[in-house]
């Protein structure tokens, strides 16, 4: 059975969840939303899918794409609530988030804030937002990098928004919120338990080890033999293509500029509102 890179990625993310996972899952962007929904459908039915619905924050019991932002099918909505409650979930260890860092480094520190000089930055992003609380309290932290490059995978981040595997953790005063996996468009990564350094955990079909190494701005831990990601199962592909994401909205995260517009037009032409 043939499959695409984006299908491999969302299936691999979904498989990291299981039946014991009883918490809220929050994606950031189409591919992570689809992966969370696939996880909920196939592997972790107790996950609560976070989105916004009808003017409030909401958790959904099942979801498929696309839907107009803020207006999911009312039948999916388990509960709506005020954004204030999100912080109770995060601080209480009931919040799992898949975030898109601007930079991530060899020890899993992440930057969502700014590039360049700290006081006169060359680029300014949204700010550290909820990353500091998630990386000390979150239930399970994922980083998703759809554009794996030396600009994103750096030796040291320009600004620490999220705490990786540094002295704070080794000394034991940060107990939770450890980065669990990094999923990029070139591979799956975890962190070596002894050194805290980023390690290749799975190479996708169709991506070479050299692609990964040449586009990473630091030395990765590469196990021998090189771990290869299992292909999506026929069941995963069937549910993904027929039920969760038939218009393949997940592709939007991997496209920019004209390619992005083209995918969006194609989704709209097939009746999809986003």
């Amino acid at each position: 059975m043939e499959f695409t890179l984006d299908e491999q990625i969302v299936c691999q993310i979904a498989r990291t969840f299981g039946p014991e996972d009883d918490f809220v899952i929050s994606g950031t962007g189409p591919a992570t939303f689809v992966a969370a929904a696939l996880a909920q459908r196939l592997y972790a039915p107790r996950l609560a899918f976070y989105t916004t619905a009808f003017g409030r924050a909401a958790i959904l019991s099942e979801v498929s794409f696309p839907f107009k932002f803020g207006q999911p099918n009312p039948d999916w909505v388990m509960a709506t609530f005020d954004t204030e409650e999100i912080f109770s979930f995060v601080l209480g260890g009931k919040w799992c988030i898949l975030m898109q860092p601007v930079q991530v480094d060899q020890y899993g520190y992440m930057n969502l804030s700014q590039i360049g000089d700290k006081y006169r930055p060359s680029m300014v992003f949204v700010g550290s937002r909820g990353v500091p609380e998630n990386t000390v309290n979150g239930r399970r932290i994922y980083y998703f990098v759809p554009n794996h490059s030396k600009r994103a995978f750096v030796e040291m981040v320009d600004f620490i928004s999220g705490v990786g595997y540094g002295p704070e953790r080794r000394e034991g005063w940060i107990k939770w919120g450890v980065p669990y996996r990094v999923f990029s468009n070139l591979g799956i990564f975890d962190f070596d338990p002894d050194t805290g350094r980023m390690r290749l955990a799975g190479l996708y079909q169709g991506v070479s080890l050299n692609d990964v190494v040449a586009n990473t701005g630091f030395e990765l831990v590469i196990p021998d033999p090189v771990p290869v990601a299992d292909p999506p199962t026929p069941q995963e592909l069937k549910v993904l293509r027929q039920e969760i994401d038939p218009l393949a909205t997940r592709r939007l995260d991997f496209a920019k500029g004209e390619a992005y517009k083209k995918i969006l037009e194609e989704i709209r032409a097939r009746g999809g509102e986003m």
């Binding site: 700290k118 609380e133 000390v136 620490i160 999220g162 705490v163 540094g166 005063w173």
Partner: peptide
Amino acid sequence: PTRSGLGTDILTM
């Protein structure tokens, strides 16, 4: 008191 901010550049800034 909170754990938020520990280990980040929010504290150095």
